[in-house]
Design a protein around this nucleic acid. Structure first.
Lengths: 139, 139
DNA sequence: GCATCTCCTGGAGAACGTCAAGTTAGGGTG
DNA sequence: CACCCTAACTTGACGTTCTCCAGGAGATGC
């Protein structure tokens, strides 16, 4: 892997992520959410299987007791619910409520509209999509 | 802009950024750096003009007094230096020291080696580079 | 019963963020 | 030059949020 190209790519990716995060933060302020809360929200994909709190802690590289606090806050705002695991009584899973999915989509929407990615043509977006798919799947 | 494609692209970008951030955090732990400190480090590109503290605060969407603290910490570790602006005595610029550039590159290196981007061929990386360049420049 | 797993609770601590003065430098205007 | 106003940075105090750590309750499997 070419060192120079790789470095440039990373700079771009971080720059892009930075711009997106900037837009994101404006959205977060409006919704009175913090970055860690949004990170949890981001993991809770409505189309995927429910995550246990322990797995969330692993994905977030933090202590399980921390996830307890974060999910309690989300629950308090009615954005998520902790539900017992159907087969294992020890485990509790965190799933988005309807309001949570709503917030997640609204957050996505505000970022979509002002993202640098909007400056690409449809064809270019499809190319980009294909490249990113391969990159992510190869990990 | 196709809503569905755009949403998928954003999910991918965030996912990619998330994976990179994960690797990054391991590097940060080793170097005893926090995310906000790394954000400042990231802005201080060695090849660009020095940034004033006020501009850094603007780019980070935070209070100038906060930047004072962060740059003081970087200075304390010998990673950056605050230098008076040559033409305006009110302004202080923050520039990386040699050690700072070293850390910045080492951080880049650890991420480069384990990034999902490494799974792409050289040609694909060049395509990706071109697309990202256009997207970022159009912003 | 025993070891293990998952989660909750409570306490301590650090890091970050905002807010409100205070200090120094610039740029006008008379 | 004297004056005033603005700008950039610093300092201090304060609160919030997140993080880790240790201990305890409940569930699981042997």
């Amino acid at each position: 892997m070419s060192e120079e190209l790789a470095a440039s790519l990373l700079n771009q990716t971080m720059s892009l992520a930075g711009q997106i995060s900037g837009r994101m933060q404006e959205g977060l302020d409006r919704l009175d959410l913090t970055a860690p809360l949004a990170n949890v929200l981001w993991l809770l994909r409505p189309d995927a299987d429910p995550l246990s709190l322990r797995k969330i802690a692993g994905l977030l590289h933090c202590d399980p007791s921390n996830v307890t606090l974060l999910s309690a806050k989300l629950e308090q705002r009615g954005l998520a619910e902790r539900r017992p695991h159907p087969r294992d009584g020890r485990v509790r899973t965190l799933v988005l409520t309807e309001a949570g999915e709503n917030v997640r989509e609204r957050l996505l929407g505000t970022v979509v509209r002002q993202s640098p990615l909007a400056g690409l043509t449809l064809e270019e977006q499809q190319q980009l999509h294909a490249l990113l798919t391969k990159a992510i799947d190869s990990a």
